[in-house]
């Protein structure tokens, strides 16, 4: 039994790999931005005084957290199609990933919101700030700061999970790999390369979040406290 690896045969497809990696990163970037916004709104909604809004947000979060991502993707894919909406695989993938990561973001942000001491909010109320101003100036950043590691890990996980978007033929990294391995009959080599590329993408994202953290939390930078 001998293991024979032929990387050059696979590596000559590097433009395809690169294209797939870029598309994966794009998917992750869009879904992260939209999911962060959407999830934060859902987290705010869960604390709403209106039982209807709070309930709807809770149902959303629980429904998503208790179903597989692939099923969610198919639901969005076939759901939009049956509504007569013809959208690109990329758009569908971004929508499905946004809905998915939004639910996890909501849950993480809710923990962040709950960690803000009541006294902070009372002090802000005492200064005549409105509810919206209090969320924006007093609660949001410290809440994000508290959950930043959990939040950013979730976004990296999302990028990795986006590989299932190959199922609706979005041309991301895993889809490209499937194609190359069936073309070259070099499956092992192909997936080794893909694994390495995913690791690189993860590192790129983590570095990005680290840099973003420096911008978002100037106090950490000034006082030298790590996140």
């Amino acid at each position: 039994m001998s293991l024979q690896l032929d990387f050059p045969a696979v590596l000559e497809r590097w433009p395809s790999f690169l294209g797939g990696a870029v598309l994966t990163l794009e998917l992750a970037a869009f879904a992260t931005v939209f999911g962060a916004l959407f999830g934060t709104l859902a987290a705010v909604g869960r604390g709403s005084r209106s039982p209807l809004i709070a309930g709807a947000c809770k149902v959303y979060v629980e429904a998503i957290r208790n179903t597989p991502l692939l099923v969610q993707i198919f639901l969005v894919y076939f759901g939009l199609a049956s509504l007569g909406l013809k959208l690109s695989a990329f758009t569908v993938a971004v929508a499905a990933l946004t809905i998915n990561v939004g639910a996890y973001t909501a849950e993480i942000m809710r923990a962040g919101f709950e960690a803000i001491p009541r006294g902070q909010i009372e002090a802000a109320e005492g200064l005549a700030l409105s509810r919206l101003q209090i969320y924006w100036h007093i609660i949001l950043l410290p809440a994000i700061e508290r959950v930043y590691p959990a939040l950013t890990s979730q976004f990296v996980l999302l990028m990795l999970a986006s590989s299932v978007c190959s199922q609706i033929s979005a041309e991301e990294l895993t889809a490209v790999a499937n194609y190359i391995q069936s073309d070259t009959y070099r499956a092992f080599e192909t997936y080794i390369i893909v694994a390495v590329l995913y690791i690189i993408l993860s590192l790129v994202m983590r570095a990005g979040f680290w840099g973003l953290g420096l911008v978002l939390f100037p106090r950490r930078r000034r006082l030298g406290t790590p996140l």
Binding site: G119, A123, G126, A128, L129, I138
Partner: peptide
């Protein structure tokens, strides 16, 4: 609450803002 100032036992300064930002926030926003 613009007419009344309240100070608590536990200070409740906003930790992510500098002292200057703590002070200027409400006059600017409100």
């Amino acid at each position: 609450r613009q007419d009344v100032g309240i100070v608590f036992q536990s200070y409740n300064l906003f930790p992510h803002l500098t002292i200057e930002q703590n002070i200027t926030l409400a006059p600017c926003a409100v």
